[in-house]
Design a protein around this nucleic acid. Structure first.
Lengths: 207, 207
DNA sequence: ATAGGGATTGACTGGCGAGTCAACTCAGCG
DNA sequence: CGCTGAGTTGACTCGCCAGTCAATCCCTAT
């Protein structure tokens, strides 16, 4: 059935199939046989390339998360204002979702937000992202760009939580999704968390 | 072993044990036997009071979530400023966590954030909460208390996501927890989402 | 007293699904 | 042209665990 193929390619093929299956059925609900079927490959071959079902999820998560950590580090290294940096971070996450919603769905639903049971393994890796965002906030507070009423870690959690919840809204059809919404969301998350929902004090003060 | 007891009490006892077990081991990882043991009750008795393992989780979630929906409705019915309403909502959620961290952990980790597989059943119920918060925002926008750069639904997701992520931080020790932090968090989430992280334009303008 | 019936028990079953493995295929190489 | 080893196959094993059920217990009513 499956033609001979270089190892790396076959692995990729199984990984991609797993992403689709995990996104569709959920990690716990799906069987390894489903992944093999989706990939058009024999059951046993999955175990030729991966040690376990969990290892597949590991790989899916780590591959994408490491890219994100790298991107955030680069963004942080620049000298743009913090608000622009946060917008870049939000933008990257939204773009990730636009580019491959299934991968993001799996990461959010099965790893990031499943820190019990499975995700516990990756708690440290997940925390790295929060720390990087916290660092951006901390610097902005030191510069006076952000107020320091909130600890950087707290702000980072609120910021990341807001984004993840918006993605969750798209994933489960609780929020209108679509190209236009994705574009707008990048800015709006930052506008909300940085600018706040309040009508601006400035204009309130001028009344 | 277990003394005779009124049906409702025994059910409660099993429910409470289940909360502890789910919080400790996770829904998928624990066995029904663990719940029975924790409750000090025979295996079969669990099935005398509940139709299935899932039904137990259902009950835990619905009991608490319905209380929350009711509270939010009451808060919304008052005529306080939206910011105070949101603070009340955040306060209730934080108090819920302080009062019974295990229940909130189970709800967040196993239901709210597991909308694939299991939580799908409750998606509608979960959405109700977001809608109620959105309503608060919508009214505030109509009154001019909030800007209308963001759709109410979007703001609701960002707000709820921020809170849930903060709780998640406490649950998994990514954020310092404790009585003082809980008290502060209520206001800070609202301060962050309503007031924004930016140094206020007013004070920036006076420099 | 004692019968009735809900509460309680825990051994047992049935199915499911992760992971194994022995057999097979075949491209490339000497 | 046979040999080798990586790639591929899918039937099979084996443990686990949700859910069943027949037996037992003990409160209550008569």
């Amino acid at each position: 059935m499956a033609q001979r193929m270089a190892g790396a390619d076959r692995q990729r093929q199984i990984l991609d199939a797993a992403v689709r299956v995990f996104a569709r059925q959920g990690f716990h609900t799906c069987r390894v046989a489903d992944i093999a079927d989706e990939a058009g490959v024999a059951y046993g071959l999955v175990y030729h390339y991966f040690g376990s079902k969990e290892e597949i999820l590991d790989r899916i998560f780590l591959e994408r998360w490491n890219v994100m950590l790298e991107v955030i580090r680069e963004i942080d290294a620049g000298d743009a204002p913090a608000r622009a940096k946060l917008e870049a971070v939000a933008g990257f996450i939204v773009e990730s979702y636009r580019h491959d919603p299934d991968v993001m769905k799996v990461i959010i639903v099965e790893v990031t937000r499943a820190a019990n049971s499975f995700g516990r393994t990756h708690l440290e890796k997940i925390g790295e992202a929060y720390d990087l965002i916290a660092q951006i906030v901390a610097r902005a507070q030191a510069d006076g760009e952000f107020k320091d009423t909130v600890t950087p870690k707290f702000a980072a959690m609120a910021f990341y939580g807001a984004i993840e919840q918006v993605l969750t809204g798209w994933i489960f059809d609780l929020l209108p999704a679509g190209e236009a919404e994705y574009d707008r969301a990048k800015g709006l998350v930052v506008e909300t968390v940085c600018g706040g929902l309040d009508a601006t004090p400035a204009s309130a003060g001028t009344v």
